[in-house]
Amino acid sequence: MRSHAKRLPSRPVILLLQLGVLIAFFLIWHLLTDTKILSPFFFGTPGAVLARTWADFASGVIWYHLGITLLETALAFIIGTVAGIAFGFWFARAPLVSVVFDPYIKAVNALPRVVLAPIFALWLGLGIWSKVALGVTLVFFIVFFNVYQGVKEVSPVVLANARMLGASSRDLFRHVYLPSALSWVFSSLHTAVGFAMVGAVVGEYLGSAAGLGYRIHQAEGVFDTVGVFSGMLVLTIFVVLIDAAVTMIEKRLLHWRPQDTGGGQH
């Protein structure tokens, strides 16, 4: 009988279940490595990974690397977003430009960005800027396409109405195009922030002297499985935290939108 019920349990129950999955994961991992079904050398053990992570934070070594990665992420995100918005607007408002550049934009976007990492390292050195550049190439296109879409998708009636009400082209930008484009940008914010971080970590992984990607690479070099997993754990925790922050910002800025898409939380 109950199986027909479509209602989900309440939020605390769901949180509890989610927590249960996490604990179960660590428990199974622990059991499998403890009984040597999986080799602790290749798979680490949850106890060791947690202990290592804790030690890294306690001794403070991780903060420096985390700071570097976050700085690269933030710079890639900001530069990529600003450039994406500027070019998105330009292309959307200048049809000739958009038509001429269309195939090139598509080609560059289709290129796997990882192959650029060595080139950026060559041009910009092994410091943070080669990582920022890699992140920018990822973030830029997401924001660019969304802004372009946002400007193009403005309802012609809303536009005509604003013009009838006396809006100048500056007013149209501020009161119509920008809000519409920003709503598209914000809906892609999660992806953009995620990609900024991917750019930073992959860049560090492929060549640098600091950052979380560098630490994971170092650990791999000496077959330190626990170190690799510990690095991944730290990365995951911060991605989740950043994502939560983005959700909060999004809710504040997009409160005018109908909340019909999933989620359902207020």
């Binding site: 809303v158 109405n161 604003a162 939108r257």
Partner: peptide, 8 residues
């Protein structure tokens, strides 16, 4: 048709 600015 609907002509209000949905973000205002």
């Amino acid at each position: 048709a609907e002509a209000l600015m949905p973000w205002k």
